[in-house]
Write a protein that binds this DNA or RNA. Structure first.
Length: 127
DNA sequence: ATTCTTACA
DNA sequence: TGTAAGGA
């Protein structure tokens, strides 16, 4: 994870600040948590601490609500987004496999043509 | 002062 | 969703 992503995911904001930043009531913010639309961390004193990503998420939720979506509808949206994320993860793995195949074919070509000894081009190629 | 949970004359 | 109550 990049430093930037790390900062955005750091839970450092108390609910009072989140209320001002999102213009949502504490009631609403806690309710969305119950619905698992956000999962803020808790500090030593059981106080909810939010990250900048949580802020974005809450603003996003507010927009969806204004657009007429209900809580369950928003849940479905995020559920499908998770599905897409996992699809991309699989594709990335497949992409690396293809790259590997290309390296192997390239190596085949080089020693079949007698320019290099076998496997001399496949040294420690990390996946 | 702030936030937490629970409950609803 | 708002708000009150009682504790941390």
């Amino acid at each position: 994870m990049s430093e930037k992503e790390l900062r955005r995911s750091m839970s450092v904001l108390p609910i009072g600040t989140v209320m001002k930043l999102t213009d949502l009531s504490a009631r609403q913010i806690r309710y969305y948590e119950q619905q698992e639309l956000i999962l803020p961390e808790r500090n030593e004193g059981n106080r909810r601490m939010y990250s900048l990503n949580d802020i974005d998420r809450l603003l996003e939720i507010k927009d969806y609500l204004d657009e007429g979506l209900n809580i369950s509808g928003i849940k479905e949206v995020y559920k499908k987004q998770q599905m897409i994320e996992q699809e991309k993860k699989k594709n990335r793995e497949k992409q690396l496999t293809d790259t590997d195949v290309r390296r192997i074919l390239e190596d085949e070509f080089l020693h079949i043509s007698g320019l290099m000894p076998p496997s001399s081009t496949l040294n420690n190629q990390k996946l």
